[in-house]
Design a protein around this nucleic acid. Structure first.
Lengths: 226, 226
DNA sequence: ACTGGTTTTCAGACAACTTTCAGCCTCGCC
DNA sequence: GGCGAGGCTGAAAGTTGTCTGAAAACCAGT
């Protein structure tokens, strides 16, 4: 679970990092708004924790910019300002939650859990799409009576596809979410895994297809007929 | 936007209904936990506002029961209890937000907007003109039941036409916006793509025509007749 | 060090897209 | 009607993006 923290108060940023890492989140921290936006635009994070008052670019504008680019990463605002109008502006700018400083770590963690739960569609043990089942525990891909094991990366790719089954996902998104922002992996890595997955989908006889949208990305579709 | 309110304090329930209706939500109110669960199980609501302390069945148990049935309707808890442990328990039982009484109607409304926004993130963007739809996400051109994929450049040309459907667009404008100012592309490139587009518009049986304005440019028009 | 599964890398084949060109058509003007 | 500039379009050639098999590199467990 990748979290981006954008917070200019270095003391607080460190404390947050510490708390989050203790709870097994992977944390990236940046200290100003422009960097925050740049990192967030990689679309590699599951949640963004955003201070409202930031150097260079404020939190509201960051969220607005992300949403304009259709990056839907859940955002939790942190703010010293308790004023009602700030809360409302924060939530209406596209954030998902708003917590005022000082806050209790326990509440922050609970709210993060609530946000991440919503992402994973509340089905902890398996994902469904058309005639296939992805077992999240074992990493097995099942269709009817047939089933086949997926490697870790295959699993990660298919999970992203199934969690966003109506949308096109770009190679850059896969790279950011699976290989990491800093990685040197190239488009062909994603292509290779798409190819592996198509072969396995064929092997278990599923009607599901991963369609290519040239220069855009990939999307899952169910093709009923043979 | 359908909201279910489960609240045993009749005075508060009425006030809530009133506020929500003023903001054009459709509201159903019930006064105890069992009824709340029954109504929620219909899966007909976009959001559920749930008091924690309820007769017959408490809020935590209602959410847990819903989630067990894979009903993912967002839940906002209302509670008189400000205690941290209650908030955490509420959020971890599967709720999406937690507000303590007394609360400000404005904040409640903002939090409802945040919850409902997240639901409808599937609103793909599209451009409309006469009987055609241009899917911005996938680059598909749709008319009635027929649809056809556009290449990147075809898409770019049509998008400019549809964004300025009343004006004439010059070839120079297309060249500058699509091929770039420095490019060596010539007028014939634009002509070629206009030709491709006309063929595809014909193929999907649209009434839309791209008309030529000699020495000026192109413009879209809808010609009702066959 | 060996093994088996996983991941990365590479190159050739392939398909889709783009450009180019030539011949034809159309319009407005003389 | 004849002419020329501007516009259209089919076909071919050129370019780019994607797919996939095979090999190499990697890695954990034995």
């Amino acid at each position: 679970m990748q979290i981006l923290v954008v917070e200019d108060d270095v003391r607080l940023a460190e404390a947050l990092t510490c708390i989050l890492q203790e709870h097994h989140y992977l944390v990236d921290v940046v200290n100003d708004g422009i960097q925050g936006l740049t990192y967030a635009e990689s679309n590699a994070y599951d949640i963004i924790i955003l201070d409202v008052m930031l150097p260079k670019m404020n939190g509201f504008d960051i969220v607005a910019a992300l949403r304009r680019q259709k990056i839907a990463t859940p955002v939790l605002f942190l703010s010293a300002r308790d004023a009602l109008s700030d809360k409302i502006m924060g939530l209406d700018s596209g954030a998902d939650d708003y917590l005022t400083k000082p806050f209790s770590p326990a509440e922050l963690l609970a709210r993060l859990r609530a946000l991440s739960r919503r992402q994973s569609k509340l089905c902890f043990e398996r994902l469904l799409f058309a005639d296939i089942i992805l077992e999240l525990e074992t990493g097995d891909l099942v269709c009817g009576t047939k089933s086949i094991h997926l490697s870790f990366k295959e699993f990660a790719v298919l999970k992203i596809l199934m969690n966003n089954s109506r949308q096109a996902i770009s190679k850059e998104t896969f790279l950011a979410k699976i290989w990491g922002v800093e990685s040197s992996a190239e488009d062909n890595n994603v292509e290779a895994y798409i190819s592996f997955l198509r072969k396995k989908l064929g092997f278990i006889g599923s009607e599901v297809q991963i369609v290519t949208l040239r220069k855009i990305g990939y999307r899952m579709e169910a093709h009923k007929d043979a």
